[in-house]
Write a protein that binds this DNA or RNA. Structure first.
Lengths: 350, 350
DNA sequence: TCCCTTTGGTAAAACATTTTACCGGTGCGA
DNA sequence: TCGCACCGGTAAAATGTTTTACCAAAGGGA
């Protein structure tokens, strides 16, 4: 019990070689070790139940083999499916490549003390993945054009040169527009994301509206309302839209939560979502399929986004050759047709 | 750029004291340092932009100031709101007490190599919080009656002596039974959790059925069906229940996901959940409030469970005096009445 | 036979801290 | 005046690796 854990020196002694040799065996590299000694060392490790100390290992070469997942200080961020899916993707890749994942929340005090830099200086972590970034996170400027290993997940920035991986929001906007147009809808409302602070929200809304315009549908500015990505704000936005144009036949919401909020608003004025008012969401979170009617939406492969972002970060870390390749990478999206959209004719015929 | 990061020795030199003194100042403890030197050292740290290396710090006293959150290798575990809420709770407490959180997934190879022990031996982590435990995780025996710092979150075990924190499932079962009974329901079905492998599921179901019996309602064994906590299994279980007794007026599901699955089953036979068949869930996950009708459920404060579990683990770690106090702690639950339950009379009157 | 290269391996420095034991000086009681 | 406690601080050992530079022996070509 009180017996000290075996260290590399014990293994060396037990197998009659130097501690350097043990280290070389441990790190597999360097075939400078004969098979005989290798086996002897391995046997000694086994019998002593030796496990190298991660702490001590990191010291000399200043590597922790750990990545940080940093999220903004939203209400219980980890309980959000959106973040959860991304984190799952990140974990898969990190684990496969021998890295661990540290969770960090960017609370105000955390940002003020620039702990995100300490984290790196500290050797606690070899790189950072930042989720939920907005234009308001001005401290991201600390990473602008620096060679610090950071990847922003699912947002882009014009003002700072940062590595990032995003879903193809431009394509999503076009898909939504095409779908509603082809179903015959012409009076369409849009619940945008927080477009003032999120570049991908702007992109989604702009391409959506532009594609509609290209096809001859002009959406009144008053039929575009911002929400904050939550159910409640989606409901309020939809209330607003329906008040401004009671004849609306379709709504495109920038995420599923707001789309589900729109369901409530539609019901509140005695209409039926998916019959009187077609609704398209975005993201395809689990509750979307569960809703009644099941929500037609644009699937964002967040798992994939997490995987790609993590791979990108590790590539940067492991080959210290700075930023080769594009700063921003895109992950494809696809339409998932369910029951919340109907052709306009069918709605009219009722 | 290539300039080496300042270390404790540099600070010592700059402030004209020994490196021990700097260390003492750093660790705040020991008021053996005069205010004058303290200020001098602090100033030197400031001007050198010194940040102590977490890695090196951990080495001598074998503490990482980090906790591991270990989850089973379910499909994308982190995307599950249930785990997410618990993790949020854990994070809050850990951060407040100066600890970091490492994410780990118990994949098969992970378990085979007993990495969960390595993690501790390794000094990567000072303690482990295990989420989603079942009786099938037999490797938990490695922690049985050992003094290793582990807390199991939201499950209990009779076969092993382990620290744990759980929701009060016994109370939840009684609340559900009381509620349905008082609404006048007498023909009641129950979708249980995986009772064969999860002790808290057994507890929930047993107290539910027992309370009904106490009040004179005898539930046929055939009206208790197991599900696997997922929407789909809930739907299948409800199909089964409704086939076995088409006159059923109420269903209690062991979690909200299965309750929402039951909605689908009820609709599939042309009935209306919350009108023809009252449904009670358990957990109160976000989609419960969003469902139509909004789901009546028993709120489990998972955030609180996470907080409590983490506090318990840290108490154990910081005061090495082994296991004082109860092995299992309980967190309260409460009924959340929404629209998925109606008095039997009202259903009958239709 | 001499020199050079390769093979298999080692000694020692470096990494950045904590902690233990100790030390010189000062003030105070006996 | 002696001895002791306390104050402010230090030297050195300990923590467990990686990595660089070096070395001895063996083999091969000239």
């Amino acid at each position: 019990m009180a017996t000290r854990r075996a260290n590399i020196r014990d293994v060396a002694k037990a197998s009659g070689v130097s501690l350097t040799t043990v280290s070389l065996v441990l790190n597999k590299q360097d075939h400078r070790i004969s098979e005989g000694t290798r086996q002897r060392v391995l046997a000694a490790m086994e019998s002593l139940q030796y496990t190298p100390s991660r702490l001590a290992r990191g010291l000399p070469n200043r590597r922790a083999n750990t990545l940080a997942v940093l999220v903004p200080a939203l209400q219980h961020a980890f309980a959000d499916v959106y973040f959860g899916q991304i984190i799952s993707g990140i974990y898969e890749v990190a684990a496969d490549r021998g890295y661990r994942i540290l969770l960090e929340v960017a609370r105000p005090s955390y940002v003020k003390r620039k702990e995100y830099l300490t984290l790196l200086d500290d050797c606690s972590v070899d790189g950072i993945l930042f989720l939920g970034a907005t234009d308001e996170h001005t401290w991201l400027a600390d990473f602008h054009a620096s060679n610090r290993p950071l990847v922003v997940v699912n947002n882009t920035f014009e003002q700072w040169e940062l590595n990032s991986v995003v879903c193809d929001y431009a394509e999503a906007g076009r898909i939504a527009a095409n779908h509603l147009y082809e179903l015959g809808h012409r009076r369409i409302g849009h619940i945008a994301g927080p477009a003032d602070v999120v570049a991908t929200s702007r992109e989604l809304s702009e391409t959506f509206l532009q594609r509609l315009r290209e096809r001859g549908v002009w959406v009144d500015d008053r039929l575009v309302v911002d929400g904050q990505f939550q159910v409640e704000t989606g409901r309020l936005a939809a209330d607003e839209l329906l008040a401004r144009d009671p004849e609306l036949t379709a709504i495109f919401a920038a995420n599923d939560k707001m789309a589900l909020g729109a369901y409530q608003a539609v019901r509140a004025i005695g209409k039926r979502p998916g019959e009187d008012v077609s609704i398209v969401g975005c993201d395809d979170i689990p509750p979307a399929a569960l809703a009644d009617p099941a929500l037609t939406t644009i699937r964002m492969n967040f798992l994939r986004v997490g995987e790609t972002a993590c791979a990108k970060l590790l590539d940067h870390i492991e080959s210290r050759n700075g930023k080769e390749g594009a700063l921003a990478e895109r992950v494809g999206v696809e339409l998932v047709e369910r029951d919340s959209c109907v052709p306009l004719a069918s709605a009219a015929s009722r």
